[in-house]
Write a protein that binds this DNA or RNA. Structure first.
Length: 568
DNA sequence: GCCGTTTTCGGCCCGACTGTTTTCAGTCG
């Protein structure tokens, strides 16, 4: 028995109870119990007091005892026997929750999406008390689009949506100010929808203009306080717009940035002090409403420092505010250690990349073009990289405000050898090693390849360690804990690749790496000047893992970088 | 179902919108 199984059992129980239309506090209690275990850093064997945890009581405790003693839960078994499995997808239909599903099941025996579709078409649903013609029609059309809706969209895809919507919003003069909120603002890897806060005194006008100009699949809700639509872009994506007055903005942006758990925790905190948080402000005990000029002031009202959106996750961040000051911030970044030029598959010359990095105020940078194995990327042969070294050394003499290091992004070959020999590697200042081929090899082989790179004394960093593309491919599935252990053992840097397609390593692995004392570099892997801006996304993503400034190599001053990395 | 320096019952975060109702329940974020 392990913790994950217990957590999943609680979640299943909650799901089944929801389908039965159970009291939602009861459902929430099981979800909360799952959450309590999730948040506890200890493994099951390290927890001798699991039944005494806050949030675990008689009912949830009995489930744990069952699982520990006989590997299964009587309660879950009973629920699985009573609740038809076909009901579960019904919860995905917008507008349909536990209560309504329970009612439909009771009244006309609905037990699956298929039977609901049939009942709607036969007009049986509208005969059930509390259901009308409109509900029936809506359900039917929701069932039709159920399969086509993707659900989650990666951050890089959302970025395009956000940019598009922002352009439209700027064209509406009645909008005084706006900001994206929600999971996108928190730099979540994936989002299911996109939220905007709009400051306006004329919500109805703005609403009508948005309805007229945005490409729409459907309008979900349209009131004076909010507009919910499904946008007709490359994919159908839901968007929420909230209309507020200028003085409500700070509270609204906080509220709609979430996360849900962060908000719950903030509200509990407020409540314990006799205050009440809503999206419009903070209500004091005497009923007066306080508003704020900024989110900073909002947090200050509760004696808290500004909590960056990226770290607003499960609520535990509120107990960790003392650590915030030490977290990596974009202002701390002094360099980018991974980028490409026209020498391989980049779009700009070395000089152009240097100028761009100078414009960012970096004090050092590394040019890391691909190596010969990667023919599609015009990878450098030993001869060409030696020429490149000469060019970089000479260019470096022209600048006294930035140090340009000679590096490489060397391929780790499928046969677990490296693309350059040690003699050549020793001529470089910084060596990045990475896998770009044969992703489908066994984990054993993949790890052998990574081990070769790790053991090589000239290699400084492993780039995009898992090879994943968010929402598109899993990568080559390395044993990351083992990789972290090697990084510690051989003193190698692991990368947080800031390209929004990659975000690799992922949050949980970054946490693990930092705990193990492994250094991280946040790099853009830029193939063009604009992509150097990925650094912001990368840093925000790193905050999710509570990466400290000193953990992140490219926040180090130049002399420390030379001392500990280049001359190592 | 869980919790309690307001402690064994009554509340649990809060508000908008919709569709069904004639004052509100359900759903959603």
């Amino acid at each position: 028995m392990n913790k994950k199984t217990i957590i999943r059992t609680f979640e299943k129980i909650a799901l089944y109870m929801e389908l039965l239309g159970e009291n939602h506090f009861k459902v929430a209690a099981f979800r909360k119990a799952a959450n309590v275990l999730e948040l506890d850093p200890r493994s099951l064997s390290e927890m001798d007091d699991i039944l005494k945890l806050k949030g675990i009581g008689k009912g949830t405790g009995a489930v744990i005892t069952d699982l520990l003693e006989k590997e299964e839960s009587d309660l879950l078994k009973e629920l699985e026997e009573t609740v038809p499995k076909g009901l579960i997808p019904l919860l995905k239909i917008p507008g349909l929750g536990g209560k309504k599903i329970a009612k439909l099941r009771e009244a006309i025996g609905i037990d699956s999406v298929e039977s609901l579709r049939a009942a709607c078409m036969a007009g049986e649903v509208s005969k059930v008390a509390g259901f009308g013609k409109k509900t029936e029609e809506n359900m039917l059309s929701e069932i039709e689009i159920l399969g086509t809706c993707q659900g989650k969209f990666p951050h890089w895809q959302m970025e395009k949506v956000v940019t598009f919507v922002e352009q439209e919003l700027r064209l509406i003069p009645e909008i005084k100010h706006f900001s994206v909120a929600g999971s996108y603002r928190r730099t979540e890897e994936e989002s299911s929808d996109v939220d905007f806060i709009i400051v306006t005194d004329e919500p109805a006008t703005v609403r009508e203009k948005l309805l007229a100009t945005l490409p729409l699949v459907a309008t979900i809700a349209a009131g004076d306080a909010k507009l919910s639509v499904t946008l007709d872009l490359e994919e159908a994506i839901d968007a929420d717009f909230r209309f507020v007055k200028a003085d409500q903005f700070a509270s609204a942006i906080h509220h709609f940035t979430g996360s849900k758990d962060h908000n719950v925790k903030m509200r509990q905190l407020a409540k314990s002090r006799g205050m009440k948080i809503s999206e419009y402000g903070v209500e004091n005990e005497d009923g007066s409403i306080e508003t704020f000029d900024s989110e900073e002031q909002f947090f200050a009202h509760f004696g808290l420092p500004f909590i960056p959106p990226a770290v607003r996750r499960n609520g535990s961040e509120i107990d960790r505010v003392d650590e915030l000051a030490g977290l990596v911030a974009i202002e701390d970044i002094r360099s980018d250690l991974h980028m490409h030029t026209t020498w391989s598959d980049g779009a700009y010359s070395i000089r152009e990349m240097v100028e761009a990095c100078r414009a960012k105020g970096y004090s050092y940078m590394v040019i890391t073009d691909h190596t010969q194995y990667l023919k599609v990327a015009n990878g450098l042969t030993p001869e060409r990289i030696r020429e490149q070294i000469v060019e970089i050394r000479s260019l470096n003499k022209e600048y006294d405000d930035i140090e340009i290091f000679c590096g490489t992004e060397m391929d780790i070959l499928p046969d677990a050898t490296l693309d350059f020999d040690d003699e050549l590697l020793s001529e470089l200042d910084f060596v990045v090693a990475s896998i770009h081929s044969n992703f489908s090899q066994s984990q054993e082989l993949i790890m052998e390849r990574l081990h070769t790179a790790m053991k090589n004394p000239h290699v400084d960093m492993i780039a995009h360690p898992t090879g994943r593309i968010v929402g598109q491919r899993e990568g080559y599935n390395p044993d990351v804990p083992q990789l972290i252990q090697w990084a510690k053992e051989y003193g190698k840097i692991l990368e947080l690749n800031a390209n929004p397609y990659r975000l690799d390593l992922a949050t949980d692995h970054l946490i693990m790496a930092q705990e193990a004392g492994v250094t991280i570099a946040i790099n853009t892997d830029a193939h063009a000047i604009e992509q150097l801006n990925y650094m912001t996304t990368g840093v925000n993503y790193g905050k999710k893992a509570w990466l400290k400034k000193e953990t992140v190599v490219n926040t180090w001053p130049l002399d420390k970088f030379i001392r500990e990395i280049v001359r190592k």
